[in-house]
Simulated assay, not measured.
Amino acid sequence: MKKRLTEAQFQACIKDLEVGKQTIEIARAVLVDGKPQAGFVSALGLTRGAVSQAVQRVWAAFEHSNLPQGYERVTAILPEHQAYTVKKWAEEAAKKRGSKA
């Protein structure tokens, strides 16, 4: 799935994000305009990782702000049997929301 945002979604998620102008320009071009990240590597003399990190910072802010009310994103390291149960819960919650996990 390609990560894409509307201009309104983009503006909402960068509102309180403390990043530089270049990060915002790269992220907007990739997430809103659909430009490939590779173009910024050569054009700006950045590494692929730096470009990817710029896009990921904005995308992470979007994901954090785009949770349904009453939901919380969690990250945990669990034994396999517990992780299996949590994954099943996530699938059930996604079905209730009408989306994929």
Rank of each mutant, 00 (worst) to 15 (best):
W59N: 07
R57D: 04
E63S: 11
E72T: 13
S65V: 03
T75Y: 09
N66E: 06
R57G: 01
P79R: 11
V58Y: 00
L78E: 04
Q69E: 14
A54E: 02
H64I: 01
A60G: 07
L67W: 00
G49F: 05
I77S: 13
G49M: 09
A60N: 12
V55P: 01
V74L: 14
G70N: 06
Q56K: 15
N66V: 04
E80C: 07
W59A: 08
A76W: 11
A54M: 03
Q69D: 14
Y71A: 04
S65H: 12
S65D: 12
V58F: 01
R48K: 13
F62G: 08
A61D: 03
L78G: 03
Q69W: 04
V51R: 02
E72D: 09
G70A: 05
P68W: 04
E80F: 14
A60I: 05
V58C: 06
V55G: 03
A50D: 03
P68C: 11
V55W: 06
A60M: 11
V51W: 00
W59C: 04
S65W: 03
H64Y: 06
A76Y: 14
N66I: 02
T75S: 15
A76V: 10
S52N: 13
V58M: 05
Q53P: 01
N66F: 04
A54K: 04
A60E: 12
G70I: 03
T75N: 15
H64K: 10
Q56Y: 13
H64N: 07
V55L: 03
V58T: 06
L78Y: 07
A76L: 15
V55T: 10
L67C: 01
Q53K: 13
P68L: 09
S52W: 03
Q53T: 12
A61V: 05
Q69N: 13
V55M: 10
S52E: 03
E63W: 01
E63F: 00
V74Y: 10
G70V: 01
Y71G: 05
N66W: 04
N66H: 12
S65F: 01
V51M: 10
A61Q: 04
V55I: 13
E80S: 12
Q53E: 10
A54V: 07
A76G: 05
T75A: 14
P68K: 11
Q53L: 12
H64M: 02
R57S: 05
P79K: 10
A54D: 04
A76C: 08
V55F: 11
Q69C: 05
T75K: 14
A60D: 15
W59V: 07
W59Y: 11
E72R: 09
G49V: 05
E80D: 14
I77F: 08
A50T: 11
R57M: 15
H64C: 01
R73Y: 12
Q53F: 12
Q69S: 14
R57P: 02
P79N: 09
F62A: 04
V74E: 08
R57I: 08
Q53I: 07
S52I: 02
I77G: 02
T75F: 08
I77E: 11
R73K: 15
G49K: 06
R57E: 10
S52F: 06
I77W: 09
G49Q: 10
G70E: 02
E63K: 09
A50L: 04
S52M: 01
R73M: 12
W59Q: 03
N66R: 02
P79I: 07
A60V: 05
W59T: 07
R73Q: 15
R48N: 10
I77K: 14
E63N: 11
V58R: 00
G49D: 10
T75Q: 13
A61G: 12
I77M: 13
L78R: 07
A60Y: 01
